[in-house]
């Protein structure tokens, strides 16, 4: 138990400082025995959790194979930049959506009309006991927000848990700051709902920058008489995470993304090797982007 008396209860900054100091004294373990990093997490998050407000999951879970790369999932209130080729929707962006959808959360997609819906459904269905037809039930799409995308993102961030957006044009710094402020507002007010933002393309304040460094596709590499006889059977992707959230270090992970059934699967090198020596001439072909 930690106590603190206030001399001037209207002095907001003073109360915050006192509360932070008081919390430092609280044993730094939270539910589940996990060590929490009090210094790093915004104060209000901890206050919100203690205040008995409607408790939402702290971070947004990711698909099982991605947990190695993003151990804590995606934090609410954060912006994540996914740098895909030409800003076109890739499996990595779909995987982030799929992680939230599979966990029963709501997602929104703004300004990405080419979103591969069937691929997303396969990723969600691959994660667990989810019916493919029901996988997309919690997805709200706004294919053409035009110039009003910041307002659309702000409105949706009040309702859903994860928003994927492609601004389409270069984002002016002040617009970016406005969207960031809106996201953080949700987080810091504690009682308010808070969403995470995934941007297809660059985002100056992104705490986490993700990209697919290379994908090794299987099935399309027949040679000689088997040329052209195969079909795409999957790809092994090398994903890279950088940014402030990783402490400036470069983390990477390899996985089947997509696997033959469209799901994300942890890599099994033995299986890949076996595939490569199949008599059909299917040979894993490595292509570096």
């Amino acid at each position: 138990m930690v106590a603190q008396t206030f001399e001037d209860p209207t002095d907001l900054a003073g109360r915050r400082a006192a509360l932070a100091a008081a919390l430092e004294k609280v044993p730094s373990t939270r539910a589940g025995g996990q060590r929490s990093v009090l210094g790093a997490a915004p104060l209000s998050e901890i206050v919100g959790a203690g205040g008995g407000a409607e408790q939402v999951q702290e971070s947004i879970p990711v698909l099982e194979p991605l947990t190695g790369l993003l151990p804590g999932g995606v934090r609410r209130g954060d912006a994540v930049s996914v740098q895909s080729r030409d800003g076109i929707c890739d499996y990595l962006a779909l995987a982030l959506l799929a992680g939230a959808l599979a966990a029963g959360l709501w997602c929104a997609v703004v300004g990405v009309p080419e979103l591969g819906g069937p691929a997303l459904a396969d990723l969600v269905a691959g994660e667990g006991d989810v019916d493919r037809a029901a996988a997309l039930d919690r997805l709200v799409v706004v294919p053409a927000p035009g110039e009003q995308w910041p307002e659309v993102v702000a409105a949706l961030a009040d309702g859903v848990d994860l928003v994927l957006v492609r601004p389409g044009i270069e984002v002016r710094a002040e617009v970016g700051r406005r969207v960031d402020a809106r996201l953080r507002q949700g987080r810091s007010s504690g009682t308010r709902h808070s969403a995470a933002l995934v941007v297809l393309g660059a985002w100056s304040s992104a705490r986490l920058v993700l990209h697919t460094a290379a994908t090794t596709w299987t099935g399309l590499d027949g040679v000689g008489p088997t040329r052209g006889c195969g079909r795409l059977t999957g790809g092994v992707s090398m994903l890279v995470a950088e940014g402030r959230a990783t402490g400036g270090r470069r983390h990477s992970a390899r996985m089947w993304l997509p696997a033959a059934d469209g799901a994300a699967r942890p890599i099994d090198d033995a299986a890949v090797a076996a595939r490569g020596t199949e008599a059909s001439g299917e040979r894993a072909l490595r292509v570096v982007a």
């Binding site: 997309l136 709200v140 927000p145 949706l156 309702g159």
Partner: peptide
Amino acid sequence: IPDRVARAAERVQALLGHDSVARLRL
């Protein structure tokens, strides 16, 4: 559909028009 999601989607509909917000169906 939770209320907060419905409210958010309806707000975007008010902003961009009824057909601008959709759900995907396989």
